[in-house]
Design a protein around this nucleic acid. Structure first.
Lengths: 122, 122
DNA sequence: GTTTGACTTAGAGTGCACTCAAACGTCTAC
DNA sequence: GTAGACGTTTGAGTGCACTCTAAGTCAAAC
């Protein structure tokens, strides 16, 4: 069992943000008799998954939706699958955009470097 | 020469956003005698470049900085080069993250699909 | 000649995702 | 027994990047 600051460090998400995620229904830690949040291995795994989704720009609203479906049970598997497939497509499009800009920058950077060599020769 | 709405359509950036970029110093269209913004081919190229930077999450503040350096002249070439190289590194890190999450999703999606085949067999 | 539509401005509003503040509770160490 | 570390809550604040509103100007179309 981890306290909020322990899990915050483990998943590298601030305690502030974890409380915000709880308010949004994305995570639901157990409370001990002092009302203090306790996170277990399941919570850890879930947060690592959530983090990957956020790092790849899935909106919090969609993560909420995924969580809601998950909690609703087995019969929402299809809907969850669709969400994940859509996000995978988004990721692949994003990779395309990044690769194209990477190439553009490579060209631009080499132009800059040539320019500087020329100015050195003067 | 293009009006704001024409260039907006050409680069697919809203006229609102273009005015905002102008206020931020990222673009500086010519004005005709009615005070109406006129964009030429140079502006078009610049905006296409800016768009690629924004699409790959370069903050507006950094694009401002790049623009400022560009307008300052030749002697800032080094600083501009550094900005572009930093952004390229950012892009490459981002690609890594996206690829890792893509793989994770591929695994998760196939688990979902297996699960659904099993439930079909019942 | 008036209506339509595109343009202008300054400044306010929006949505997202945090991020922080303030006031308070509770456990542990000295 | 009190200081300090860490926890709690509600609700407000922040930063970013737009996005829109309101009030006005101006030229061409009917």
């Amino acid at each position: 069992m981890y306290s909020i600051s322990e899990i915050a460090e483990k998943v590298d998400i601030s305690a502030h943000t974890l409380r915000y995620y709880e308010k949004e229904g994305i995570i639901d830690p157990i409370r001990n008799d002092q009302g203090i949040r306790q996170f277990d291995e399941q919570h850890l795994k879930w947060l690592q998954f959530v983090k990957k989704l956020r790092e790849t720009q899935m909106p919090v609203s969609q993560i909420k939706e995924y969580t809601r479906l998950f909690l609703e049970g087995e019969h929402t598997a299809n809907a969850r699958l669709r969400l994940l497939e859509d996000h995978q497509q988004f990721i692949r499009d994003q990779i395309e955009t990044l690769l194209a800009t990477d190439e553009m920058l490579t060209r631009k950077i080499s132009t800059y470097k040539e320019l500087m060599e020329k100015s050195l020769m003067k």
